[in-house]
Amino acid sequence: MTALLEVGHLVKDFSAHGSLFRKGPVTRAVDDVTFSIETGETFGLVGESGSGKTTTGRCLLRLIEPTSGEVRFRDENVLAMPPRELRRTRRHLQMVFQDPYSSLDPRMRAGASVAEPLVIHRIGNRQARDARVATLFDLVGLPADAAARYPHEFSGGQRQRIGLARALALEPSLLVLDEPVSALDVSVQAQVVNLLLDLQQRLGLTYLFIAHDLRLVRQICSRVAVMYRGRIVELGPADRLFDAPAHGYTRALLTAIPRLDVTGRLDRVEYDEASFERLPLSEVAAGHWAAV
């Protein structure tokens, strides 16, 4: 396996309401984040709200400009790319959002939404694009006549399928999936998760899976990074990280997951926020790193 995406010392600062001459206080949303994603794997980025996981995902595609650091896609520095080259690279790096309803134009028919990336990148003529849209709808399990309908006519699960079809239109190799199923009911969520697994196998896709649902992350990710206060505090193979967490925060997170086999109070490990230190990652076992 080779690294498809490498992220090095990524930093994103947000400055709150400053004035023209004085900057407001700076919040470091992403603090020295380093990881790499291998071709074909599903890499999970987990954390609670405010941990910086979503900001990290957006920085990778430069939907938000990072403050400093490095993002290399197929060994090319994404952050140094001029606009034209960035546009070309973005074909291979696509994002899927949590709420497909807000990412789809409500006045645009589903087929047109899916074809839009092809139009923007001037790929194919009308006829070729229609054929491609039909293929994509079939790929994500939507009936062909769905192309003529509007977003509000679909259920949440179907809208997420449309979002996926749109993200796949340009044949990307990496999908950044930001909470792709967390708005869906559990029975529908399972359908979309299975679709993601099928698509990965058929198209050889690589996933960065950003999620707060640790049960789901355990189910589908090969490796996992845990973020806390903008930093990765632990990173390793999923089975290893879930079975033998090394960082106190990871232990607190994992022992807080509701369990079907526990009645009454969970036997939780609490994490003392005051004990948090900005430590570098060190390797606690093969491929398993923790800020301890």
Partner: peptide, 22 residues
């Protein structure tokens, strides 16, 4: 079906989804 579709029980496998929607 609801219990079977919950993730986490068998890592690395497909989930047992309930077909269709409400």
């Amino acid at each position: 079906g609801l219990l079977a579709s919950m993730p986490g029980a068998r890592p690395g496998t497909r989930l047992e989804a309930i077909a269709g929607t409400v």
